[in-house]
């Protein structure tokens, strides 16, 4: 029960931070808040027993993303303009998706139960097979690199794709051939 309680508290904090992000117009503030957000969600992941994920989220979400966002802000502007459009459509979209999700989640199995399909069908297989088949005690690693190794290859490719894409966009060119893109100096 204490697990569930910690979980609840952390999630409530998360919701508060989210409201802060929505309302803050200073972009530096937003970046700081989103860093805190990432750390909080990493803690939630710890509570949910996802230690690998928590570690990644902490380093990527709180670390890498924040560095990138700050870098971007350094290169652009620090403040958000007031929006021209009335937020009716966005509210409608957000509420629509929310409602769809409410509709969808009402029948979901309750939190933390061991007898739901997720914990019955494929998941336990990994727990049971990892040691005898691969000899790796960290089941996340064995699933990541072996059972679903192809996903991870795809994930590596995603990183590679994004990296090349960013370099294509941002790398300083040796020669000035920017005549091709108007508006640039």
């Amino acid at each position: 029960m204490s697990e569930a309680l910690i979980n609840t508290v952390l999630l409530s904090l998360l919701a508060c931070i989210t409201i802060g992000i929505v309302r803050t117009r200073n972009l530096f503030g937003v970046v700081v808040l989103s860093g805190i957000y990432s750390l909080l969600i990493a803690s939630v992941m710890m509570v949910l027993d996802a230690v690998d994920v928590a570690m990644t989220e902490a380093s990527v979400g709180a670390g890498m993303s924040t560095v990138l966002l700050l870098g971007t802000l350094y290169l652009t502007k620090g403040h958000e303009m007031k929006a021209f459009k009335p937020p009716l459509l966005p509210l409608f979209v957000a509420i629509g998706v929310g409602a769809m999700l409410v509709y969808g989640t009402i029948d979901l199995p309750p939190f933390g139960a061991a007898d739901q399909p997720v914990n019955q069908h494929v998941g336990p297989d990994y727990l049971a097979r990892s040691k005898p088949e691969t000899g790796i005690p960290n089941v996340v690693t064995s699933v990541l690199a072996s059972y679903r190794g192809f996903d991870t290859l795809g994930e590596t490719t995603v990183v590679f794709t994004a990296g090349i894409g960013i370099l294509m966009l941002l790398r300083r060119r040796r020669k000035k051939d920017d005549t091709l893109r108007e508006g640039e100096k």
Binding site: D49, G112, A114, V118, Y126, L127, V140
Partner: peptide
């Protein structure tokens, strides 16, 4: 849904 109350990380 993957969390089981009273469970530990899958190591």
């Amino acid at each position: 849904p993957g969390k089981i109350l009273g469970g530990t990380p899958p190591i």
